[in-house]
């Protein structure tokens, strides 16, 4: 595996010069690759990106998100998805193809304030993001605690191949649904486990930029420490 070079950056910082591929949160100016965000830069496999530490959620097709119903028309629900755009869920997605605005009542399925796990079906900037609940584990969330973290820190909460979230779930026996939009639902039958899981999530949110985060979370949860190659070069 190639070494991942990491560094703390702010907007305008030149991350590198040369024949690299600019990816998220960077841009190319001549042969310089420059950060557009406060975050941690990564050069991996000739690609350069910055993992931001602040900023709003930008919907991407296929993202799993958690949304809150803010209203509906006769054809669709509108969702607060913690973004500058409002999410739309068409009535047909819930009722099926033979949905009829005269006989079906949207309110009976999803009402104002309801939380829903959904996927972004389409988002192309010319229109607001289109949502779907047509998949396993999607749909109305019946119970659990809603936690809000910075959307930019969601990748850290998930961890490499889900390592961080698995660690937390295993140690606390809690069920955690992570929306890419920074909204997270935690549920557990054990109140202690619930509180522990929430504490761990808050810890990741507050310390996402720090080295050895996995170890810190593990030690907070009382889990045995393992190897960690998660380092940051200043």
């Amino acid at each position: 595996m190639m070494e991942t070079k990491r560094r703390y950056v702010i907007p305008g910082d030149v991350i590198t010069t040369g024949p690299f591929r600019p990816e998220q949160n960077v841009y190319q100016e001549g042969d310089r690759i420059i950060s557009t965000s406060v975050g941690i830069s990564e050069i991996f496999d000739n690609a350069v990106r910055v993992i931001p530490l602040t900023g709003i959620y930008m919907p991407k097709t296929n993202d799993l998100i958690i949304g809150k119903v803010i209203g509906h028309s006769s054809l669709s629900w509108e969702f607060d998805i913690n973004s500058c755009f409002v999410g739309f869920l068409p009535a047909q997605d819930v009722f099926g193809r033979d949905y009829s605005p005269t006989k079906d009542e949207l309110k009976e399925r999803l009402d104002k304030g309801d939380l829903v796990a959904a996927r972004v079906a389409n988002f192309d900037r010319s229109r607001d993001p289109l949502l779907t609940v047509q998949d396993r584990d999607l749909g109305k969330i019946e119970s659990g605690e809603l936690i809000e973290i910075s959307p930019s820190k969601v990748p850290r909460l998930i961890g490499k191949r889900g390592s961080m979230i698995q660690t937390i779930e295993m140690a606390t026996k809690a069920m955690i649904t992570i929306g890419q939009n920074g909204w997270i639902v935690v549920s557990s039958e054990d109140p202690d486990g619930l509180l522990k899981a929430i504490e761990a999530i808050r810890m990741v949110d507050a310390q996402a930029h720090m080295p050895n985060l996995t170890e810190r979370v593990k030690s907070m949860l009382g889990v045995e420490l393992g190897d960690n190659n998660d380092t940051i070069n200043e």
């Binding site: 702010i10 907007p11 305008g12 949160n25 841009y27 100016e29 420059i34 557009t36 965000s37 406060v38 931001p52 602040t54 900023g55 709003i56 930019s152």
Partner: peptide, 11 residues
């Protein structure tokens, strides 16, 4: 603006 996470070419 940088604190709000608005993408910026430079400060």
């Amino acid at each position: 603006l940088a604190d709000a996470g608005i993408p910026m070419r430079d400060l």
